[in-house]
Design a protein around this nucleic acid. Sequence first.
DNA 1: CTTTTTTATTGAACTTGTTCAACGGTTTTT
DNA 2: AAAAACCGTTGAACAAGTTCAATAAAAAAG
Lengths: 195, 195
Amino acid sequence: MLDFTPILENVNTYIPLSKEESDYFVSLLKYRRLKKKQYLLQAFDHCKYETFVLKGCLKEYYTDYEQGKDHIIQFITEHTWTSDVESFIKGTPAMLNIEALEDCELLQIDYASLELLFQAYPKFERWCRIIFQEEYISFQNRILTHLSKSGKEKYLDFLEKYPGLMHRVPQHQIAAYLGVSAEFLSKIRKQLAEE
Amino acid sequence: MLDFTPILENVNTYIPLSKEESDYFVSLLKYRRLKKKQYLLQAFDHCKYETFVLKGCLKEYYTDYEQGKDHIIQFITEHTWTSDVESFIKGTPAMLNIEALEDCELLQIDYASLELLFQAYPKFERWCRIIFQEEYISFQNRILTHLSKSGKEKYLDFLEKYPGLMHRVPQHQIAAYLGVSAEFLSKIRKQLAEE
DNA sequence: CTTTTTTATTGAACTTGTTCAACGGTTTTT
DNA sequence: AAAAACCGTTGAACAAGTTCAATAAAAAAG
């Protein structure tokens, strides 16, 4: 039997839900599993779902075909949401890939269901607004980091902000998140170890 | 007499408003002028307003005291919104400065008024949610740019995305937005001119 | 258990971008 | 009208980060 506690807690942090509201919300969710290396979303497809991670870890990234390089926008771990927002909302082809780095358990809601939810209980608009505000703030901080910090500083910040992720994700992918080459990250770590 | 057309159009893009809703919204707004070089917000103050720009141009930036450098998050021009979102919502001290680059005319709404508005007409939550979604997408693209592009490419992208701003804002501030030194931007421009 | 694939490290040569200092030309301010 | 502050450019020396190629270790697949 499926445990909806984590997702309900996630919503309840921002808007208190009645039994009726919780039940309706839960009735719109679909359960899905994904094995390591499988795609939740591929670039150029239409992103049909907002996805909540119950278990596992994924990466959301952009592939630059000219350079032949991946750039990681975000790692997505337990109890957070992911989607290609623009594709989800506007129905345009996705720009991003989302791929499982571990076996995952997920809950998904599609666009039509979300609109039903908003119409039935407008307070969910508020919840969604607050989620986006939070993500906006964290993207803003990420931009500041890129504007002002060296590779070494970005790496140290990452360790503080996402403790444990370093041992869960291959190092060259951390590099693709920080915006440095895999080789350079290796040299940063060597230098830090020598201190 | 004040012209509320631009701000009402801005809202109406996302949610259609009745006369009553428009009137109530407008009644909550305060008009304000700012001269060039004046602050709309200073770091460590509390950001009390969301601000809509009727006329003029501002910069939103973070001052790194260790390095003694400013890093520009965004230029804000006509018909867009600005605030230090985290400070506005959570009441914490602002991290950012917002300063007029030209004489400005502004409309402002404070936190209490915005909550009144949300309670009176929940559809404004939707509007606010969509605004944040849009800004989220544009921040995401900015991060991708920083992950994948050289100084020259970032500059060319900037010219395309914000035509005219180059001639409205001092060049060294464009550099502080792009994340390169003022001298290097000058060299990029020289190189482009020679082609 | 063996093969293949993925991952991390290292060094050398190279590229991109920074720093510093100097200069001349505008704007502002007084 | 003079002085001060601001702005953009340039060159030389330097620092940060990339690329490429080689190597070894670890993990996944057969």
